[in-house]
């Protein structure tokens, strides 16, 4: 009985953790999809890190190399990032980043593709 009580308590505690997690859709390795719950703190850290690296690596390059030619100009650059391949659920902790696109523009009213 004590064990059941502990299990029930653990279940309640873990259930409470759902509010601090993010649900992700990941390949199940069999051609389908499964859901994976990721701690919100880890999720936010990865998105932040990826966003910051994309900004640090792209903004200066775009400023220097964005072309303008015969009246045409590159006005918006979107850098999309995601995982390298379809990785199984178990690999979440080592290599997956949430898929996102980061937009740079020099247009006050940009066209975001």
């Amino acid at each position: 009985m004590r064990l059941i009580g502990m299990a029930a308590l653990a279940a309640i505690v873990f259930s409470g953790c759902r509010g601090n997690s993010v649900l992700m859709l990941v390949p199940d390795g069999k051609g389908g999809w499964d859901q994976e719950r990721v701690p919100a703190q880890e999720y936010e850290a990865r998105v932040s890190q990826v966003g910051a690296v994309v900004e640090a690596s792209s903004l200066e390059t775009i400023e220097k190399e964005a072309r303008e030619r015969d009246g045409w100009a590159v006005r918006t650059v979107a850098i999309g990032v995601g995982a390298t391949a379809e990785i199984g659920v178990a690999d979440w902790k080592v290599g997956i980043a949430p898929k996102t696109r980061v937009f740079f523009t020099n247009n006050a009213k940009p066209q975001l593709p």
């Binding site: 990865r46 890190q49 990826v50 994309v54 009246g71 045409w72 100009a73 590159v74 006005r75 918006t76 650059v77 979107a78 850098i79 999309g80 990032v81 995601g82 995982a83 390298t84 391949a85 080592v94 290599g95 980043a97 696109r101 247009n107 066209q111 593709p113």
Partner: peptide
Amino acid sequence: KLVIQPEAELVWQR
């Protein structure tokens, strides 16, 4: 070990 595969979308306008 966090690896990303980027893609770039360039919008040309005039």
